[in-house]
């Protein structure tokens, strides 16, 4: 238990905690837009960016965020809702990551870390990036939620009244890409996907209102994170798979009789 109180784990703990609270709420909006595959798409692009950065002796975090931003630009040009573009991102990102890892030992090591989700090696820049993301996202989230809900339930109306809808959609995609890319390099690629997808999936099935939905998603993300952080450290397992397994177990709540709304 003393391990948990080690100062060296404070930065990883706080970084992961912020992402565990924020990313599931972003996932709720991605699910509302039926674009939940975005998590894997942007995560793979971030992984490819990180691998390229590592091979070229560039800082990994900016390289990962940079390639994820290229994905946002592609999304803006694509102009169609749905998951097709994200499938392309997954495949192109995976191929790039594997090829770069095959020719560079640094990239190969980084690729393994992205698969394992080695949260405990996270350092100051990741913490600062997560804190900035959280500070920017919290005031933006109510605005984006309202706009995306109105786009879904009152289609075309805001656009007809001069609301810059495309600008807000771009803003949401930037927030989505940065959240996922930062989660991928901090928590691992699959953990980022699980954190974006599973809490939102459970909350959509169990919550009785929209407010309860995003609160439940954020709560599930944080609870899963706390369990996984302690468990992985105490049993000495890679954080990523422990976190994903924990989320999967918590996800079973969706099928619990009496809890599910239908």
């Amino acid at each position: 238990m003393d391990l948990l109180l080690e100062p060296m784990f404070r930065v990883p703990f706080l970084t992961g905690l912020m992402l565990a609270a924020l990313v599931p709420v972003v996932g709720v909006l991605a699910r509302l837009r039926d674009e939940w595959l975005a998590a894997l798409g942007f995560a793979h692009l971030a992984g490819a960016g990180g691998a390229l950065g590592s091979a070229l002796a560039l800082p990994v975090l900016p390289a990962a965020l940079g390639l994820a931003m290229l994905g946002v630009a592609a999304r803006a040009l694509w102009r169609r809702q749905g998951n097709d573009l994200y499938a392309l991102m997954i495949l192109a990102g995976w191929a790039t990551m594997m090829l770069v890892a095959a020719v560079s030992r640094h990239a190969s090591t980084l690729g393994q870390m992205l698969v394992d989700g080695q949260l405990y090696f996270v350092r100051g820049p990741h913490l600062v990036a997560a804190a900035i993301l959280l500070v920017v996202s919290v005031p933006l989230m109510p605005l984006l939620m309202r706009l995306l809900l109105r786009l879904t339930l009152l289609p075309h109306q805001d656009q007809a009244n001069g609301v810059p809808v495309q600008g807000y959609l771009l803003l949401f995609n930037v927030l989505l890409a940065i959240s996922v890319a930062l989660s991928a390099v901090t928590l691992g690629v699959m953990t980022a996907f699980a954190l974006l997808y599973l809490p939102a999936w459970v909350a959509f099935g169990l919550a009785r209102s929209w407010r309860a939905t995003w609160l439940l998603a954020a709560g599930l993300g944080v609870v899963a994170y706390l369990i996984a952080f302690v468990l992985a450290l105490l049993v000495d397992l890679p954080f990523g798979p422990v976190m994903v397994a924990t989320l999967c177990v918590l996800g079973c709540a969706r099928f619990t009789p009496g809890l599910a709304v239908r």
Binding site: L153, G205, W210
Partner: peptide, 27 residues
């Protein structure tokens, strides 16, 4: 002059955890 519109086709998503009360407030 702002407009409010009800398009012909506006199917609900298969799963949407929002109440009628919240919808009226959103609109």
């Amino acid at each position: 002059v702002r407009l409010a519109c009800q398009p012909q086709h506006s199917p609900l998503p298969a799963e949407l955890p929002m109440t009628v009360r919240e919808y009226l407030r959103l609109a």
